[in-house]
Design a protein around this nucleic acid. Structure first.
Length: 345
DNA sequence: AAAGCGTGGAG
DNA sequence: TCTCCAAGCTT
């Protein structure tokens, strides 16, 4: 019977509001049934990764910590294929934190394009400023320091410390949570939000060796992204299907149905449409232009006709447009200049 | 601590 | 067409 080998007590850092002093109880019973053992599990998944891993520019050894940080922020809730071209453009234009910090935040937002969640661009700019002001222009190399940066939470801090600096960190993202849920816990999906129990499990599964731990983190993430996917997992291609508790249990369905985010008719949709206009606008946009306009919009609409029409097509209530604009102002994604809206200068 | 925050591809 | 969901963070 497989057992986790005992190791000297190690300070385990649990991210997000989890008491780091909590003593570590035994693993769930099914964590002990990983067949050939934890080392073998590490070898299988890391081996699979080294054969199968995608060539991603932020995984190149030559990629700077700044490149890794930018990639991690861009990848929050955003698929790799959409990030790739924007990341390339960002790194060409801003090869280090100081380069970005030297430009207006609005440029970061504009260059963010249609990646979504544009507050991330704002925060990345603020992070660059903080790195220049507080860290001599060098991306910090510890979890604790990274965590203080705007837009950097527990996942991103651990990921940058691990992938940019080779540190042994408990990296837990949505892919890793799902792999652990199936492989070890035997359930179709992880809990709706990250639990202390998941962090404990991830910490227990992490290889002792620094180098192996980094590859393990990347490998489990990749396995979740390519094979152990949320819908229609490709179990036939899984290097650890023989050890999978969920498969062994007969693929029980999820115990809950995640509720999707509303989109049509929401403030978010209006904000998105307004931002699309502002990204293309070269001069401040008067508020009247955001309102449905039957006749011609005049020469001022030059270049922003398409996103403006898209906004008008939403036909949103005036108070909803008001809310969206006010929200963008308070978030710092837009500012008022001579009575018109523009990206922050 | 639950809710808000974009976008587009896949099934 | 419509729903789901993708390397989360912040308040």
């Amino acid at each position: 019977m497989f057992r986790l080998r005992s190791r000297p007590p190690r300070r385990v850092r649990y991210s997000v509001g989890i008491d780091a002093t909590t003593k570590s109880p035994a693993l769930p019973a099914n964590a002990r049934s990983l067949g050939p053992g934890l080392d073998a599990l590490h070898r299988r998944i890391v081996g699979w990764f080294e054969e199968t891993a995608r060539d991603l520019p932020w995984r190149e050894p030559a990629c700077s910590p700044w490149g890794v940080l930018v990639s991690e922020i861009m990848l929050q809730q955003t698929p790799v294929v959409r990030v790739l071209p924007v990341w390339e453009e960002w790194l060409r234009r801003w090869p280090n934190p100081a380069a970005l910090a030297g430009e207006p935040a609005g440029e970061a937002v504009r260059c963010w394009g249609r990646l979504g969640y544009p507050r991330r661009a704002l925060r990345l700019h603020a992070a660059a400023v903080a790195i220049v002001d507080g860290h001599g222009g060098k991306v910090p190399d510890t979890y604790a320091e990274l965590l203080t940066l705007p837009g950097v939470g527990s996942y991103t801090a651990a990921a940058v410390a691990a992938f940019a600096y080779g540190r042994r960190e408990t990296v837990v993202d949505t892919n890793i949570r799902r792999v652990h849920a199936r492989l070890v816990s035997g359930v179709a999906l992880p809990a709706p939000s990250l639990t202390a129990s998941e962090m404990r499990l991830a910490a227990e599964l992490l290889p002792d060796d620094d180098g192996t731990s980094v590859r393990w983190n990347a490998a489990v993430m990749e396995l979740g992204a390519l094979v152990c996917t949320a819908r229609a997992p490709k179990c036939a291609a899984c290097p650890v299907r023989e050890q999978c508790a969920w498969l062994a249990a007969g693929e029980p369905p999820p115990s809950y149905t995640p509720k999707g985010q509303a989109w049509h008719g929401t403030d978010r949709q209006v904000r998105g449409a307004v931002m699309a206009v502002l990204r293309l606008a070269e001069t401040p946009v008067p508020p009247e232009m955001f309102v449905q306009e039957p006749a011609d919009l005049g020469f001022e609409a030059e270049g922003i006709g398409a996103p403006l029409s898209a906004l008008h097509r939403l036909n949103s209530a005036p108070e909803q447009l008001e809310r969206a604009l006010a929200g963008l102002l308070s978030d710092g994604l837009a500012e008022l200049h001579h009575g018109g809206y523009r990206l922050p200068a």
